[in-house]
Write a protein that binds this DNA or RNA. Structure first.
Lengths: 229, 229
DNA sequence: TAGATTGTTAATCGATTAACAATC
DNA sequence: TAGATTGTTAATCGATTAACAATC
């Protein structure tokens, strides 16, 4: 989903609506940089991002004054500034719980690493699989026992976890992760997870995208969607 | 990500912000129904969904008058009404292009089937894999040749496709899908896909969730996220 | 200087919220 | 009838948009 807008503004004063669009700009700028473009106008970047130039300039103005009047924006510099605001310049240690088909695929999935999410731990409940070597991004990791969950989280400073277990195990894993101090959970198990209100975690439904997509398919003639992971 | 709100209102007059929350209500209602609850008040459903009761009632009022004053909402009836609006009561044929680790996992992933997305075709470029039998939801499917793409789309009335190919192949597959009449593409290849503006497809970035998540992690003390697929 | 393009302003529009009349 | 809870109203708040002054 869209992210539910529980808070109107982030602490830095950047509106949520703007933050939600920054990754789109980041992606468009990356594509431009790959093509060797060094400077881009708000008009060009806007149409590459599918927004109006007025909205783009308004959004960027919340980050600071990174453009040059009469010229445009330096692609690399703007790319860095957006990455910084989004936390993409930081390293985010991630643990994956459940190394079945999906967990295995997610471990190898390049989309994590390229956004600063570094898989530092693979956990599985099956004792027979403990010790198995798996490629996670550019490094080889050994599957560890589920019992080591708390230890891995503490050792590596993990604050983000991916649950890719069977549905039946998901809630118990979730409880242990929260207790261990993990503050973000990406749940791929087909289960609704409960977290104590006091923890203050917000819930984001990836499935929302698919459902809205269906809705729009049904309602709007010829209006489809490209969803990118 | 959040769906970009290109259009303020859908054709039925339901605000986009409301539509984006309907799947959350749907999920909360499902959990209640599973627990045997038959009637729920706006207060109860709101706290189960993480919104205020005022917002919930306002949202539901856009669908119609499905509650009973002094009593609450019938869980099953409301569930059906929301499902209908979201298009979950319809069958959406889906084709998956690229049956590697991720494509294989997605084919078997229960989250598709339970939301009306029925996998009707599996395509792969590797001739050696054509004919291979794969479980997709509750049915056995044979992998077909990539050359059959147009035929499968036409035969099954496919309007939604999942791209799970290597990055290098993604754009070509995307072009063929669009030409064949597919209006929604869920792209898991680590590539930015271009679609002609005239097609009018909207772009939704799943990765946005991860990036916003990182942002919030960084900015807001103790405010995390539960992302559910 | 002249042309181009940013960053900001102010008006418009949609979403949220709290309060309450309607009604079961 | 009395209590409970919906559906709606009106005020508030945030987001979008177009126009333009600032400035490279």
């Amino acid at each position: 989903m869209p992210l539910t807008s529980a808070n109107a503004r982030s602490s830095r004063g950047i509106p949520d609506a703007t933050v939600a669009r920054l990754p789109v700009y980041h992606r468009a700028l990356s594509a431009l940089a790959d093509r060797g473009v060094t400077v881009v106008s708000s008009d060009e970047l806007a149409s590459a991002s599918g927004v109006t130039s007025a909205k783009l300039r308004k959004d960027l103005s919340h980050l600071g004054s990174y453009g040059t009047r009469g010229v445009g924006y330096d692609v690399d510099y703007l790319l860095y500034q957006i990455a910084r605001v989004l936390g993409l310049t930081q390293d985010w240690p991630v643990v994956i719980v459940g190394v079945g088909n999906l967990g295995h695929a997610l471990a190898g999935y390049g989309g994590f690493a390229s956004r600063g999410f570094r898989v530092v731990g693979l956990l599985d409940a099956d004792p027979a699989r403990v010790g198995e070597q798996i490629m996670a991004g550019d490094q080889l990791l050994s599957i560890r026992a589920l019992a080591d969950l708390e230890q891995v989280v503490a050792e590596c400073g993990v604050s983000i976890a991916v649950i890719a277990t069977p549905a039946a195990a998901a809630q118990q894993v979730c409880d242990r992760l929260v207790a261990a101090g993990v503050t973000s959970i990406l749940n791929f198990a087909p289960a609704v997870l409960a977290v104590p209100e006091t923890v203050g975690m917000r819930r984001v439904d990836l499935a929302v995208e698919l459902q809205i997509l269906a809705f729009h398919e049904q309602r709007r003639l010829g209006l489809g969607a490209v969803v990118s992971a």
